[in-house]
Design a protein around this nucleic acid. Sequence first.
DNA 1: AGAAAAATGAGAATGATTATCATTATTAGT
DNA 2: ACTAATAATGATAATCATTCTCATTTTTCT
Lengths: 137, 137
Amino acid sequence: MHDRLNKNSMAVLKMVRASHSHPTASEVYEAVRQERPQIGLASIYRILHNLVEQNYIKELRHGDDTCRYDAHTARHDHAICTQCGALLDIPIDVALPQDLLEAAAQATGIEFSSHELRLYGRCPTCQGQAVQHKTVE
Amino acid sequence: MHDRLNKNSMAVLKMVRASHSHPTASEVYEAVRQERPQIGLASIYRILHNLVEQNYIKELRHGDDTCRYDAHTARHDHAICTQCGALLDIPIDVALPQDLLEAAAQATGIEFSSHELRLYGRCPTCQGQAVQHKTVE
DNA sequence: AGAAAAATGAGAATGATTATCATTATTAGT
DNA sequence: ACTAATAATGATAATCATTCTCATTTTTCT
Ligand SMILES: [Mn+2]
Ligand SMILES: [Mn+2]
Ligand SMILES: [Zn+2]
Ligand SMILES: [Zn+2]
């Protein structure tokens, strides 16, 4: 399943692994360009798809229209800021009761294979800013 | 928060409510056109955004690049088919332990306001089809 | 080395969504 | 009802992330 990676692919994988912020394709492009200035954006997309295919990384999508990549491949959950859209890792293992998951899967008829919990709320950065609707105009 | 809705907005809201399949903007457009043939796609997008803003409906996004709308505004969970991408409602209330949710929120520092559980697996339709990788070529 | 196969990157094409703007309804004041 | 002001509409163009195409380059294999 895991093929050997060439230099471009290695550079992309390293960048995604080094980033702890679920980078977008164009963020990966800008970073990888530092090391491999000749690389093209089409290759970034192609390589990211290959890495997903080969289970080196995962693809994430939420509110905005760009998709993000995650080198953290173990099952884990995310928190999404309702104000700025930030996508944060939940750094602990949230052990949801297996029977609840199975009951939910059964209710839809899907062949359950994995799950993700998403929490919504204001992120720490946004909490530090003026509270919505409470500022004097 | 809820303004009065005009005819176009009502037609859009009715369509989203009648559909049980999380329709896309262009699916809404095609359906609403039957009743209001002069409506433009720009109005569909504008109205859908207004309805989201006013909490009549919710916006959902997952794997593909189109966003989907849901008239079911009470908190609920979804199942996503790993083969065809179908987005299905989980028709039961999955009561996750509140302390787990709070611990997860605390771990990220977000001001917890809501959550969604996503299950991944093959949907009933896809299960009915040939099993992946087991077909003879 | 030389042929065949695979990978690359520049640039065009695609497709969903958003912005613009002239026209058409709706509202409020008379 | 009449009119001025305001808001909503829809056709069309613009945007932007992603995908496609294809000539060129790099790698693999003999
Ligand atoms: Mn993550
Ligand atoms: Mn739903
Ligand atoms: Zn935030
Ligand atoms: Zn399916």
